[in-house]
């Protein structure tokens, strides 16, 4: 594939990540429901994962994770790892996705957010002997998951368009190389 196509694809994905990050940190922070914020970056990573496959998911996750690391002040690389795994795991379900039904994407986003929550808990809380897993699951993970799914409904169509755009670029590059 020609470099220009790769670059344009990467730029498009990065744009989605940027917008997601801004939405999460600067916009939704004013619309927190009962102190809970939706996780836009997990939504973007998860959707890109099952729309485009394992590789795209992992790479997009890596970008999202680095961003979170940059503004988190904890060990650098924790979020990158979590997001890479989330993106890759979503990529495994690419075969189930046809783009005609919003139920699967929402389920995937919900699951991804729970997995994300579990990994954050495991890496940053459990090791500091915060043992009350049930409490954290019910009071942090689940509310976040519900709000994230609500936001994912809004985000699905832009992400669907993005996927279409990436497919178009792929097709054009095939024609170009043929």
């Amino acid at each position: 594939m020609k470099l220009q196509f790769i670059v344009s694809k990467v730029l498009l994905v990065l744009l989605a990540v940027f917008v997601g990050f801004f939405a999460q940190t600067a916009v939704f922070s004013h619309f927190a429901l009962a102190g809970v914020l939706p996780n836009v970056l997990v939504t973007v990573t998860s959707m890109l994962g099952f729309m485009r496959g394992r590789k795209a998911g992992a790479l997009c996750g890596f970008a999202c994770g680095l961003l979170c690391d940059l503004f988190s002040g904890d060990l650098f690389g924790t979020y990158a790892m979590i997001f890479v795994l989330v993106g890759y795991l979503n990529g495994l379900f690419k075969k189930l996705y046809f783009g005609d039904n919003i139920r699967l994407p929402l389920m995937m986003v919900a699951l991804s957010d729970l997995v994300y929550g579990g990994m954050v808990y495991f890496s940053r809380f459990l090791f500091r002997s915060r043992m009350d897993t049930g409490y954290y699951f019910l009071n942090v993970c689940v509310p976040e998951m519900v709000y994230t799914v609500l936001v994912a409904i809004l985000l699905y169509f832009p992400m669907y368009k993005l996927d279409q755009l990436l497919v178009t670029i792929d097709k054009r590059s095939v024609r170009h190389s043929a």
Partner: peptide, 14 residues
């Protein structure tokens, strides 16, 4: 304060 932490687990801000 220009942004909040991107997660519900931590209380950091920029």
């Amino acid at each position: 304060v220009i942004s909040r932490s991107a997660s519900n687990w931590f209380n950091t801000f920029t």
